[in-house]
Design a protein around this nucleic acid. Structure first.
Length: 566
RNA sequence: GCGCUCAUAGCUCAGCUGGAUAGAGCAUCGGUUUGCGGUACCGAAGGUCUCAGGUUCGAAUCCUGAUGGGCGUACCA
């Protein structure tokens, strides 16, 4: 439920009764337990405008606040803070309602936004490597989150399947065709190196490779056939990775670079018509005021560039797909590029003014010593290798190994390992650089997926032992329960904000606070011990159940699974 | 050179719209009535929020400047 909105409404009503009108009223979570559950700080700036004593106004306002519903107590504190305590009975009843609902009381948007989330976007010429990890993970989470909240999400995988290197690759593929073409493509990295090796030393081969680039672009049947075959195999490799990573991208979501080919000349034509284009050194450029370097949309030799493709994609997404929010989950280093492209798209009318264009930027992945993440010999780390290692390491971290047969242990290690990789990536502010540390991510201590999965398993273990029906009746009995239940009710507020900011780490921070608070509750408030009365036990079971469902739902939005025992 | 961005505890990170005594985890030290999963929980210690100004009732947060790091900077994507 949108609890904050509810409290805001109450405060707003009280303000109106005091003849005060504010454009927007927003309470915040109390900074300390002594200050209650929520606090309203808006009186102080107001007092300045009204030239009145803030405490006097605050005192007047709180006398108009009803304390028989959600709020049980309000106080004026300090220079004019209004501290708000919520009613246990009200919270209890809200929590019971959430527990009875499949979606935990989280509403779906009444007016959904059609939103394109552009993420992953691997290059077909090479194997997926760690450079694609963050975009894939963050983008998928954003898409999951928006979908859950009711937006019409269109996932777009803008794969790189066009460009000069493909001439070389298909020329090489052609030679191997009669032998074992697809077999050689198993290791794309090696294939690329071999092809490059030939290209560099053999003139005949290099010439043919260059001819093939022209031929593909000219629509030559034979070359296109080879090219399609190559892309198909390479994309298949990506799909294996998506499968392992539990990423919701399918072939239907692929709109490759080549998809926009037909639109490229039209984009340039349109820009020209709008009077945006200036020719400089033979290239068609757009100069933006304040920017030193122009955006080139067509090269001197007539070729197009990635800015042109991105403009074409924006146009397509806006016009054909009808998107009102277009989110690019791309490395922060491309901030300058997107700023220009977005600007041009809007100025030239390729995209309507009311469409939200956002660059969901993220930082670089570093190793433990703070340097860019590479293999020992300085090469690129293949994603497939990294994920395999995650599963192997996860297996070591599992306690109850003996309770599993080989097959289900593998499955469990997969859930734990992949979850760790995803969670650690999602749990830091996406814009800062991210330090990749195996030991930290697979630790049971601290803000990790394993800690959450462990907490979940503990709750499941209680339920298994209890072996009965768990009701929805919650009755808050003490301070810890009060805080935990309130936190659980706040789930929707957190998701809404994370969606607005495209910021998954707000979800992980929240889940971690739920789990730690639950652990405290678990220590201090026994559930199945002898001497616990029926009603208390029922309520505690229900609180545990709501906690488990919240963790499960939260992790599932992050694309991470839970298990009943670890 | 110009532009973007970051700087919070020894380390990794939170910190909302400017709000009260800046918070977690790791590491360190100490503790937990035989415990519903102890790979847990509780506590202690740890800070000039890079520096210097400014804005104001109030600044880690906003503005200006400095220092240090990362990144980008015309026909690659």
């Amino acid at each position: 439920m949108k609890i904050k909105e509810h409290i805001n409404q109450i405060i707003n009503d009280a303000l109106i009764k005091t003849s005060i009108e504010l454009d927007s009223v927003s309470v915040t979570e109390a900074t300390k337990v002594e200050f209650g559950d929520y606090q309203f700080n808006g009186i102080m700036p107001l007092a300045k405008i009204l030239k009145r004593n803030p405490r006097d106004i605050a005192t007047e306002v709180i006398s108009s606040i009803k304390t028989n519903g959600a709020i049980v107590k309000v106080e004026v504190a300090g220079p004019g803070f209004i501290n708000i305590w919520l009613n246990d009975e009200w919270l209890s009843s809200q929590a019971s309602t959430l527990l009875a609902d499949e979606r935990l009381g989280i509403t779906t948007k009444e007016n959904p936004t059609r939103v394109v989330v552009d993420y992953s976007g691997p290059n077909m010429a090479k194997q997926m490597h760690v450079g694609h990890l963050r975009s894939t993970i963050i983008g998928d989470t954003l898409a999951n989150l928006l979908t859950f909240l009711g937006d019409e999400v269109i996932r777009q995988n803008h794969i790189g399947d066009w460009g000069t290197q493909f001439g070389m690759l298909i020329a090489f593929l052609e030679e191997l065709e009669d032998q074992s073409g697809s077999e050689n493509l198993r290791d794309l990295e090696q294939f690329y190196k071999d092809a490059k090796g030939r290209f560099d030393v053999e003139t005949d081969f290099a010439t043919r490779a260059r001819e093939y680039v022209v031929k593909i672009q000219g629509g030559d049947e034979h070359c296109l056939q080879l090219w399609k075959q190559f892309i198909d195999i390479s994309l298949g490799h990506c799909e294996e990775i998506y499968e392992k990573l539990a990423i919701n991208l399918s072939r239907d979501d692929v709109r490759a670079e080549s998809f926009y080919n037909d639109r490229l000349p039209l984009v340039v034509e349109h820009l020209d018509k709008m009077g945006k284009i200036e020719v400089s050194d033979g290239a068609k450029c757009i100069f933006i005021e304040g920017d030193e370097v122009p955006t080139i949309v067509q090269k001197g030799d007539g070729g197009y560039l990635y800015a042109t493709t991105d403009l074409a994609a924006l146009w397509y997404r806006s016009e054909v797909l009808g998107a009102k929010r277009i989110s690019y989950v791309v490395d922060a280093r491309q901030a300058g590029h997107f700023k220009q492209v977005f600007h041009i798209a809007k100025e030239s009318g390729l995209v309507d003014k009311d469409v939200l264009l956002e660059h969901v930027a993220f930082g670089t992945m570093m190793d433990k010593s703070g340097k860019p993440f590479k293999t020992r010999d300085g090469g690129t780390v293949k994603l497939a290798d990294l994920l395999d290692e995650a599963v192997i390491r996860a297996k070591d971290a599992i306690t109850a190994k003996d309770e599993y047969d080989t097959e289900s242990l593998d499955e469990l290690a997969h859930i734990v390992g992949i979850g760790a990789v995803k969670y650690s990536d999602l749990s830091i502010n996406r814009e800062s650089n991210y330090i990749f540390d195996w030991d930290k991510m697979l630790s049971l201590e601290g803000n990790t997926s394993l800690y959450q999965q462990y907490a979940y398993a503990r709750i499941m273990s209680i339920f298994k032992k209890y072996d009965g029906t768990i009701g929805n009746e919650i009755k808050i009995g003490d301070e810890v329960e009060h805080r935990l239940v309130l936190l659980l009710i706040r789930f929707e507020d957190i998701l809404q904000k994370a969606a607005k900011d495209a910021s998954p780490h707000q979800i992980t921070t929240y889940l971690y606070s739920v789990t730690t608070l639950f652990m405290r509750f678990y220590e201090s408030n026994p559930i199945l011990k002898d001497g616990i009365d029926e009603a208390t036990r029922g309520s505690r079971l229900a609180i545990a159940s709501l906690t488990a469902k919240t963790i499960k739902r939260g992790l599932s939005i992050l694309g991470i699974g839970v298990v009943d025992k670890i």
